[in-house]
Computed example of a mutant assay.
Amino acid sequence: MGSRIALFSVAAAAAVLLSACTAPTTGPAPLKSPSPEGSTAVTFNPPSIDSVPNDENGKAIKLGYDLMNDTKKLLPNNVGNQLSCSSCHAQAGTVEKELSLVGVASVYPQYRDREAAISTLEDRVNQCLQRSMNGKPIPYDSTEMRAFSMYMSYISKGIPEGTNPPWRGQNVKIDVSNPNLQEGQKLYQQSCAACHGANGEGTPAGPAVWGPNSFNDGAGMANLSKMAAFVKVNMPKAPMGGENPGALTDAQARDVSAWILSHDRPHFPGKSKDFPKGRPQN
Rank of each mutant, 00 (worst) to 15 (best):
Q130E: 15
M150R: 09
M133G: 02
N164G: 00
M150H: 13
G169F: 04
R168W: 13
G135W: 06
K157F: 11
I174D: 03
N171I: 00
D141H: 05
Q170M: 10
P139G: 11
G135E: 00
N171F: 00
E144L: 11
Y154S: 05
Q127T: 07
E144M: 10
V125Y: 12
P165T: 06
G169W: 02
S153M: 07
M150W: 15
T163I: 08
Y151N: 04
R131Y: 06
W167P: 02
K136H: 11
G169C: 01
G135D: 01
V172N: 03
M145E: 10
Y154I: 10
M152S: 12
R131Q: 13
S149E: 15
Y140D: 03
Y140T: 02
S142T: 11
G158L: 02
W167D: 01
P137F: 12
K173E: 15
N171C: 00
N134Q: 06
F148D: 12
N134K: 03
N171V: 00
Q170E: 13
N164W: 07
Q130W: 13
P137R: 06
N126D: 14
I138H: 02
M145N: 04
S142C: 08
P160S: 04
P137S: 08
F148G: 07
C128S: 13
I138P: 08
T163K: 02
P137E: 08
